[in-house]
């Protein structure tokens, strides 16, 4: 077998990796906003919930989170009589999203904090409600600030997807391992996998740059 024979199975794996990355990055972004905003909310319950989430998911390893969702959760489910056995894809996407969301929440919070206090005062003087201040003044100015760190997190997330091969999900890393076991052609296979991950990371970075430019257009008009 030569490298062209590896291409089809590796591409299949790459496609799974792309799906995992897209779903978990999108869900992770949603979690980032919910808990990043909740982190400094007026309601104490919301604040504590957010702190708990952020600290737990940043303070433990992704691997443990993944195994917990996939292996431990069903056992708890059994004990209380509910089927909590997740499909590998679901467990994978969930673990990745929860993990990246915890880091993203800190990014959202930091970006919101970086909006100058004077903007807040101008908004109060114009009698905006707290919710309007958040949606119309703070977030639109904070989102461009979030984009570079979000880009890094998205690439980090892409690389982290390799871990889900450990719960038998057929992603790129999993396929590579399969073929290698079969052919022992480590050098070729891992070189190809390396390049494929790198290519995907390049595309992802470019996409994030594009997005960054779009949401921050008012900053370049000056």
């Amino acid at each position: 077998m030569d490298w062209q024979d590896y291409l089809a199975p590796l591409s299949q794996g790459a496609w799974v990796t792309i799906e995992l990355t897209v779903y978990s990055t999108l869900l992770g972004a949603l979690l980032s906003f919910v808990f990043g905003i909740g982190r400094d909310a007026h309601t104490r319950l919301l604040r504590w919930l957010s702190i708990g989430y952020i600290e737990i998911f940043r303070g433990t390893s992704l691997l443990v989170q993944l195994f917990w969702l996939y292996f431990a959760l069903p056992v708890i489910g059994q004990a209380i009589g509910v089927n909590l056995q997740l499909a590998p894809v679901t467990a994978g996407v969930l673990a990745l999203s929860l993990n990246i969301g915890a880091y993203g929440a800190e990014v959202v919070r930091g970006a919101l904090k970086s909006v100058p206090r004077s903007q807040h005062e101008a908004a109060v003087a114009l009698n905006f409600t707290p919710r309007q201040r958040l949606w119309r003044i703070d977030l639109p100015q904070a989102i461009p600030e979030m984009m570079p760190p979000f880009g890094n997190l998205a690439v980090q997330n892409l690389k982290d997807t390799a871990l889900v091969s450990l719960i038998s999900l057929g992603d790129l890393a999993f396929r590579a391992e399969q073929i290698r076991n079969f052919t022992q052609d480590s050098t070729t296979i891992y070189t190809m996998v390396l390049l494929m991950y790198f290519g995907m990371a390049l595309v992802l970075t470019a996409l994030m740059k594009l997005l960054e430019h779009r949401v921050g257009r008012w900053r370049t008009e000056n």
Partner: peptide, 28 residues
């Protein structure tokens, strides 16, 4: 009952001049 003009202007940099003016009257 009150309006304020700030030393550092405090305009909303992400809005055009028109939207700086119309946003509060419309939403508030």
């Amino acid at each position: 009952r009150l309006g304020m003009v700030f030393q550092q202007f405090n305009l909303f940099p992400h809005m055009t001049v028109r939207r700086n003016l119309t946003e509060a009257p419309r939403r508030v």
